[in-house]
Amino acid sequence: MLELQQLYKTYATGDTALRDVSFVVPRGQVMGLIGPSGAGKSTLIRCINRLVDPSAGRILLGDTDLAQVGRSELRRQRRRIGMIFQEYALVERLTVMENVLSGRLGYVPFWRSFTRRFPGRDIENAYRLLDRVGLLEHADKRADALSGGQRQRVGIARALAQEPALLLVDEPTASLDPKTSRQIMRLIIEVCDERDLPAIVNIHDVPLAQQFMHRIVGLRAGEVVFDGTPAALDEAVLGDIYGAEDWTAMRREHEEDQAAEADATRRVAEVAR
């Protein structure tokens, strides 16, 4: 279980990115974090595993306050938090297997990671995860030889290799096409369900969020302005989060996209017939 209490973040430039953010994510819940760009979604997620240091507040993962831990303890805590990135952030020139095993770096001493002699249990588990995300036969390929969707699957396997108690997901589908996006999102939901894992997902695609998330938190200018079920996310709320004008524009764009997609599908079907 993750609990945030009155979290604040002010950058050195004086910009306030987060203001009094508090919520609880229970086990097994996948929470979507929506909001316009610049609302602080990325900062919030990075505060939790301290890639960004929060200015004030508490971040409780189990009994530990992540905001307070020191350097060596931080390393131990980070390995409990899996993270999935927007542009996959795989190490492109390492093999898929090395990328997955890099999820174990927090657990093994340097000599083991340097000689690539990970414990047998870690390797077995890495193969199992690669099989789970459907990339077993790609283990020895270099990461830059994979497609976008495949790379994100490796990213998921790397995060799960950490045997995390929490999953942080930063715009997992931003650089993927709509179909792959849904597959990746479904995979994330499934692995969280299998492991009863809490997760926070930054997501800019509101319909996708409504389709997959268990719960949605809306962020505007660093403040929580909505916290509820996807069903409760109506036009008025969305207008509030994104600003009425922007939201209408966004929705129109989405509808156009869908119409275009439907049109394309129909045409393909016609040609096939």
């Binding site: 890639l51 805590q77 993270m83 795989l90 190490v91 340097f110 990213g155």
Partner: peptide, 16 residues
């Protein structure tokens, strides 16, 4: 950043 997020030490970050 991604390697740091796994809890890697400074030496491991360099290596990976």
């Amino acid at each position: 950043e991604a390697i740091s997020a796994t809890g890697a030490s400074a030496a491991q970050r360099l290596d990976y």
